[in-house]
Design a protein around this nucleic acid. Structure first.
Lengths: 144, 144
DNA sequence: TATTGTTATACTCTATAACTATA
DNA sequence: TATAGTTATAGAGTATAACAATA
């Protein structure tokens, strides 16, 4: 955006600024539902694939086991999810009715956000954003 | 990337994952130079536009005044930059010789990173990444 | 009154090491 | 030996409120 910003031609920088800007907006909207971004992500994943353990979800979202603990505990304390032992050490996560309601509300916000973001892109770029971002993710992940 | 990730079609999510992945790689490379990402950004900006104050740089990079203080102090303590009063309350920032050397080393890493990231994109997407990211940034910033 | 630099503080996210109990 | 969940802790990044000096 600002043409006097000497970093504006670097994709890493642009990725960071675009991400911070987008997540800021979405985070504030989810905050109105009482959810942080990461909490909404968990509701989405558990809703789509009930029974996953928190370790499995952590691997999927690249959140470490230790850092999953307070996130899941917070959602459980609010009665949004329940744990079902599948194993002496594993517990599958499932949404409660309240969790499912909140998941749908969050999904509505996320889809409204996606629609609005896409609508604000120049016409020629609208169709390709998701593919480009997926490709950038794959490219960066491959550099590890 | 993972087709069993139910969030993989949302640009906000992809932006976050791509950004985290890319910045992780670049951050580790800059770390080998003894720099954090935000410190390297400051070296770039001051190198390109010497004399800017830390408040001005903060506005450019969306870092708040209060949070600029320890960043600038750290770079100054390492002898990478100096402050020149321009005003009773303002101080323009300039790179020292060591700061300029480190800036060039960091720039080399950043450009190597950019080249490698771009090379890892599918051919058809290589040319459009920067424009797409700039458009996404502008779109998200406009939603504030 | 507004701005610069600053201090203090708190919250979120992320990272590591270690423990326990199960497999 | 490896894994799931957990605890504790430290490092970053980010946010707000307030103050002194200056414009």
């Amino acid at each position: 955006m600002p043409e006097d910003d000497p970093l504006a031609h670097y994709p890493g920088y642009l990725l960071r600024r675009a991400s911070a800007s987008a997540l800021g907006v979405l985070g504030r909207r989810l905050g109105a539902l009482g959810l942080r971004y990461v909490e909404a992500s968990l509701l989405m994943v558990i809703g789509a694939r009930p029974g996953l353990t928190q370790s499995e979800i952590g691997r999927m979202l690249e959140i470490q086991r230790a850092n999953m603990v307070p996130i899941v505990a917070r959602l459980e304390a609010r009665g949004l999810l329940s744990r079902a032992r599948t194993d002496g050490r594993s517990q599958g996560l499932h949404l409660s009715a309240a969790g499912e309601d909140l998941r749908q509300a969050a999904l509505g916000e996320i889809e409204r956000f996606e629609t609005e973001l896409t609508a604000r892109l120049p016409e020629g770029l609208r169709g390709g954003a998701v593919d480009m971002l997926a490709a950038l993710w794959a490219a960066a992940a491959g550099m590890d």
